[in-house]
Write a protein that binds this DNA or RNA. Structure first.
Lengths: 241, 241
DNA sequence: CGATAATTTGAGTGAGGTCAACTTCTGTGG
DNA sequence: CCACAGAAGTTGACCTCACTCAAATTATCG
């Protein structure tokens, strides 16, 4: 590519998009500066605090979002109130299912969260135009499918202790992707959320956390601050894969 | 489109593809007669009997398949032998994950099954060339993701009775898509498979089936022949959604 | 018809649920 | 800075649903 042109292109990237994680590692990385500018005219940054419902189960979808910061939980709720978290989305994930009018789950901010909200129509037009964007979204869908299936094994076949260890390993992997050995992070989920993700009760989660602590596998401070001295050991406790 | 040309096109569809379900409702429906002919040069029909392993967990992928007949189970196995079925694929589903060298689960024929086996390289080239094929696969991935997440709710939050009822509703839906009221079908899974799909033991599955039978919600003959007098009632027992 | 596998049934046990009390955090206002 | 209130998390006692192990029954196939 012509060097001069390339420099020009870079300068055309909208201000707010520069340095945005979604543009580097998320779906926006496939867009041209022109497309970014176009999208940017209609996109909107939004900060929401923990606990905010972003969309309800069965509700009409009017927009999609990039998660810029924070963690969003996706959950299904039964008529009698039983709840199961079916996925966690971390920055810079794309949120929403294009071309599907009605949301099949609820999405709620688990932590304080920043979003880049994209109107439905505009994004869907861009997907039709850019096969690269489509295949990027295809890839994310496949990754989420893998994660969902891994979690099915956890839900169906693991003990409470293994389940809790699995969750800690999962969060550790997102907090510090290539960290080996030890690792520290803040839990983005309350005990109630963890229970809903693992198919357990709050009490069982609490008991297993206490046991893992007494066994020296984790240290906890202020309920949310976790330190894992040996990630491998914890992974083995999680069912070892 | 020119009528004459269209007739010619139809005649160019390879013989074996005419009347094939995958061409009408599966991924092949997006292909042109020319592409079908090209693909057909390298594809191969294959009949396998129940219990045949199609690919092992962690094994290299050399081909993809359309399922023409039968049911395939996808499962994850832990180091100590615990197993979880993470998905069922019915005809005319496409099987395999393009551009991903290593299979993350095992695939095994649950019933006697017929496949149309497509070599990896050829299919991947066609995906790059045809955005329609790509979006078709994207859609199947999203459908599978929805199913996986529905099943997470089943695994995490439902009782044994609800789980067994959920499975029966799932199979009924595939056997007889728009049948309301009553419905009869043959179970494609053994009790052991059902247990591995529901995260239960064989014994618990058996006991719950007996209870559903005694409650008049289902009739069973020869272990595999199921008759459901009232699908709605069964769906309510499954957790009602 | 006999052999083997698949399924059902029974008795006893245990992991995780339920309910309730207690402790620890967090944030607010005096 | 402390006192207090409400929320979040922990701990204990007890119970239940699903698991385990074992035996009986039924289906399948040569």
């Amino acid at each position: 590519m012509d060097a001069q042109l390339k420099i020009l292109d870079i300068h055309e990237v909208p201000l707010v998009c520069r340095g945005c994680d979604a543009r580097h590692n998320g779906v926006c990385s496939t867009l041209t500066p022109h497309q970014l500018t176009e999208l940017n005219k209609h996109s909107q940054r939004k900060a929401v605090e923990a606990g905010t419902e972003l969309i309800g189960q069965g509700q009409q979808v009017h927009s999609y979002s990039n998660i810029l910061k924070g963690v969003v939980k996706l959950s299904k709720i039964m008529a009698d109130g039983r709840q199961q978290i079916v996925g966690l989305q971390f920055a810079p994930d794309f949120m929403g299912r294009p071309f599907h009018g009605e949301s099949l789950m609820a999405a709620e901010a688990a932590t304080d969260t920043e979003l880049c909200v994209l109107p439905r129509k505009i994004l869907e037009r861009m997907i039709s135009e850019s096969s690269e964007l489509g295949s990027r979204l295809h890839n994310q869908a496949l990754t989420e499918l893998d994660e969902a299936r891994d979690w099915m094994l956890t839900l169906g076949r693991k003990s409470a202790r293994e389940k809790v260890a699995s969750l800690l390993v999962l969060v550790a992997a997102h907090a510090d992707p290539d960290r080996l050995g030890d690792c520290a992070f803040e839990l983005p989920l309350s005990r109630a959320d963890i229970a809903d993700f693992l198919g357990l009760t709050i009490e069982t989660v609490s008991r297993q956390m206490t046991k893992l602590r007494k066994d020296g596998l984790i240290h906890i401070e202020n309920n949310r601050q976790v330190y894992v001295p040996d990630l491998d050991k914890l992974a083995v406790t999680a069912g070892g894969d």
